[in-house]
């Protein structure tokens, strides 16, 4: 297994957010973490990369327990994280954004250069010197994914990559994610948009009120409209 999470509990101050969350991702798999707003998707991701200080549980990445490591160390091991709402560095140019994400090449993992990212997202190649703040939402989403790829990750957590984007751009995003998959990356996306998740995912988990409620293939989810309606209510 690429990533195994088990017994994950997280708190914000007095509030208990995640309850014994567990899931796994195999090498080269695209897994969707589905759930409503506030269900705990973002917190799950933030907990995995160590951005939530109060958390317990086991997080094994490539067989090693990373749950006690600081954020930067987890990321340097090849676990990339793309946050919700993008968070590009608005003052920095596209190229400089990539410089921040740059990490040494890692054996056995696709190595990314700015040029290769421009191939994946041709729009970005046309605006290398443009500050991140002067880009559209879709371009920023491409930039934030490209920036994480510069760290040569073997697994990427993508937090709601479709949020706030035009449906048209979301379709492009789906293509890019499938390309990343072909490069051998494991990918976890969190989504509310079931339509989008269906386009790209192999398996899905459903999280609701901080607990895992469902696990199965996309076909199984399709065959279970009750579950879908109960937890996603599209």
């Amino acid at each position: 297994m690429k990533l195994e999470v088990s017994g994950l509990n997280s708190h914000y101050g007095p509030a208990h957010i995640l309850f014994d969350v567990g899931f796994e991702v195999g090498a080269g798999e695209v897994v969707a973490l589905l759930g409503r707003n506030g269900a705990g998707k973002s917190t799950t991701f933030r907990s995995i990369v160590g951005l939530v200080s109060q958390r317990t549980g086991q997080i094994r990445f490539e067989g090693e327990d990373v749950s006690r490591l600081p954020t930067y160390d987890i990321v340097r091991r090849g676990l990339g994280y793309v946050p919700e709402d993008r968070r590009v560095f608005t003052e920095l140019t596209v190229e400089e954004n990539f410089v921040v994400g740059r990490q040494p090449a890692r054996p056995g993992v696709a190595t990314w250069t700015p040029e290769r990212i421009y191939e994946l997202f041709p729009n970005l190649g046309e605006m290398r010197k443009r500050p991140g703040g002067q880009m559209s939402g879709g371009e920023q989403q491409m930039l934030t994914i490209g920036r994480t790829l510069m760290g040569n990750p073997s697994l990427v957590l993508l937090d709601e990559p479709s949020e706030g984007l035009a449906p048209k751009i979301v379709e492009q995003m789906a293509d890019a994610i499938l390309t990343m998959k072909r490069e051998g990356l494991s990918i976890v996306i969190s989504e509310q948009n079931l339509h989008f998740a269906k386009l790209i995912s192999d398996r899905a988990y459903i999280i609701e009120k901080g607990r895992m409620r469902f696990s199965g293939t996309m076909a199984e989810l399709e065959a279970n409209p009750e579950i879908r309606d109960a937890y996603l209510a599209v």
């Binding site: 479709s162 035009a166 449906p167 048209k168 979301v170 386009l199």
Partner: peptide, 19 residues
């Protein structure tokens, strides 16, 4: 072309592709 795309991402009565 610009915004809604192919209709894969919302309930589209015309194409019947919605869940």
């Amino acid at each position: 072309a610009i915004y809604l795309g192919e209709g894969l991402l919302y309930h589209d009565k015309d194409q019947g592709s919605a869940a």
